[in-house]
Design a protein around this nucleic acid. Structure first.
Lengths: 217, 217
DNA sequence: GTCTATATCGCGATAGAC
DNA sequence: GTCTATCGCGATATAGAC
């Protein structure tokens, strides 16, 4: 909470991001104007646009911070090798199921889930500022999740012969698609259950896990 | 191609939709202005907005026309009972696999797929003009696809005991999620193959189908 | 009544002065 | 690094034309 270290520009950026994060989470994307965000950060909207090229990129930055926090926990050592938690403290199987837990976590922040879905959809355009980011994101997730899945499939009840990266791609698609439906109709879409049913088809079961609460609430 | 029948207002609406469809498919959503669409339809942008409440709803209408064409073929008799093709000309199993074929068809129109994904994402907001439409769309798809799946599961190699609507929900989510990834990286996402792998887990295989080309090219 | 146009608003984005 | 000024945009209200 204390003032972040760094240059004045970096502190201003952080101030803007905090204001944007609060307002987006509260009111969505379209309903919030750059002028509001700028006012909350103590500037005009043109001043804000000196730090971020546009409104869309502001949303992307807010979401990718959250994304990076998740990734740092799930795949320690992937990003900044600095101060990640002890790398091999948890088993591959445990970390795999914590990926599934993200589904549950997302259920608690429907506003941001909807925004994330929106940004992914718009990033389809090759010239979109977030395009390269999402391409890389899915590549990394497929590979890392595939590695965890390979281990889990070997340990499965009868070991299952399946291409881990293909299953990872299916799993990521299933989770994304369930989120789309869940955002529309939360009560009719038991995300976690559908994911577990899917994994059970490959012989993967949650086993006896404590309610670890693996990711920051 | 000849002038559509109906009142003047209906003809104007059709003219606007044709202009919008052309321009959206060519340049996407954001890059096209209401003023351009209106000009191509021979009016001012305010005149256009007399027929459609906003730009978003214009896109929704364009996409839902296409959606309705698909639905009319897959689930004859669901909508206007007027002149649908002979209802029981094809078996449930055949119609089920033609749903999967839609995935292939979509691969040929990446621009519209991206727009569709974008609209679904934005329709998450309960007050969005398309919200009710998509809620109903997924309800109908789950139910109808569930019915087809129930028949297919009974005929499966060893008959599979699974909740048809739950499998339908998984299948729809998988297809949506695969589209998201495919739009970003067409070469790395073999949609059709992933869907078939998934259905094989439930004992469902395409069997010996001719290359029917079930939906209008 | 049905349709279209003019006028005005706040918006996101850009250019240039300080 | 922040501002003022300006642009075209989507949207709304309201008045006018058929």
């Amino acid at each position: 909470m204390s003032r972040p270290a760094g240059t004045k520009g970096e502190r201003t950026r952080a101030r803007i991001l905090e204001a944007a994060s609060t307002l987006f989470a509260r009111s969505g994307f379209n309903a919030v104007s750059l002028r509001e965000i700028a006012a909350q950060a103590g500037m005009t909207h043109a001043g804000l646009l000196h730090h971020f090229p546009g409104k869309e990129s502001l949303l992307l930055e807010v979401l990718s911070i959250r994304d990076r926090e998740d990734a740092a926990w799930l795949f320690p050592g992937l990003l900044e090798p600095g101060d990640a938690a002890e790398p091999t403290a948890v088993s591959a199987a445990e970390r795999f199921w914590s990926v599934v837990d993200l589904t549950e976590r997302n259920s608690r922040t429907p506003g941001l889930v909807a925004l994330y879905t929106k940004v992914v959809a718009e990033a389809a355009a090759p010239d979109h500022p977030a395009h390269a980011y999402f391409v890389r994101r899915y590549q990394v997730l497929r590979r890392e999740l595939g590695t965890l899945l390979a281990a889990a499939l070997r340990e499965a009840d009868p070991p299952v012969a399946a291409e881990p990266e293909a299953v990872a791609q299916q799993l990521l698609a299933l989770m994304d698609g369930l989120q789309t439906q869940w955002v529309l109709e939360p009560d009719r879409v038991p995300m976690r259950r559908r994911v577990e049913e899917f994994l059970a088809l490959y012989g993967l079961r949650p086993a006896h896990r404590a309610t670890t609460g693996p990711v920051t609430g």
